[in-house]
Amino acid sequence: MEIFIQLIINGCLTGTTYALMALGLSIIFGTLGLINFAHGDFIMLAMYGGFLISLFSGMDPYLGLFIMLPISFVLGVGLYRVLFKRLIDAPEEAHIIATFGLSFVFQYGAMLLFSAEYKSVSTDYSADVFHIWNQYIDYPHIYGAMAAVILIALLISFLRYTNTGRAIRAVSEQRRGAMMIGINVHKIYAIAAGIGLCCIAVSGVSLITFESVHPTIGVHFNLLCWIIVVLGGIGSIPGTIVGAMIIAVLEMLVGYYFEPTLTTFAYFIMFLAILMIRPSGIFGIKERRA
């Protein structure tokens, strides 16, 4: 029983990080309508970013966020200007292929730069654990969850209380309507892309403190994020958070009670099951299947 509780706690802590990266995907998909299959590779790059910062400056990766966040935002805006802008009016299959191509560029680019080896970061607190009620929780996961919670809270209040945030929500609900009331959609798209990449930057930095990175890890994260978003219900923030928790806990349980390598298989079965039973996700609005 104690182990079970431990697994649940760890699952929820990892889940918050997953929630943050899935929200990054969700905001880009929801606002721009862009189907981004390179999302996982952005996370991979962010992890390498955290790795490089700690390698060269010896700083804690979290401190590196002060450099990485502005870079990520600018990168997001730049990617929108150069690539996404051309894609969003194209048919869905063009998004899929182009972003998949982008994913390949990132993967093999990373392979050339960093080789295929696993890289990890060790921090002062890497080995520390927090002891409470017979449970041991390691600090990297706790800090990761704290960072994610802070950013998710910031994101939600930004979307709710600022004009730009409200404009993003308006655009994601109805693009044509938003254009009519005078919202500059291209500016909003660029900002949304920037914010999406900022979410990725924070989750990538958190991940590098407790997981090692290699060039093809993005495939896994890409799948993970999409499954979370579909599970929670496309376009629903609470859905995404709940979905992330479910997936992370599932990952812990399957990993412990069955076999760690089989977690991907468990996702796939779960994903097919969601699609067959409730394709609109837990919090999604039901659409007619036809």
Binding site: I35, F37, E92, E93, H95, I96, V219, H220, N222, L223, W226, I227, V230, T261, L262, T263, T264, F265, Y267, F268, I269, F271, L272, L275, P279, R289
Partner: peptide
């Protein structure tokens, strides 16, 4: 369902079979 669900499940299927 929407077309990209298909793409997604093909990727997921390949990865699941690999592991």
């Amino acid at each position: 369902l929407r077309a990209f669900f298909f793409t997604l499940s093909t990727i997921a299927c390949a990865e699941a079979l690999r592991v």
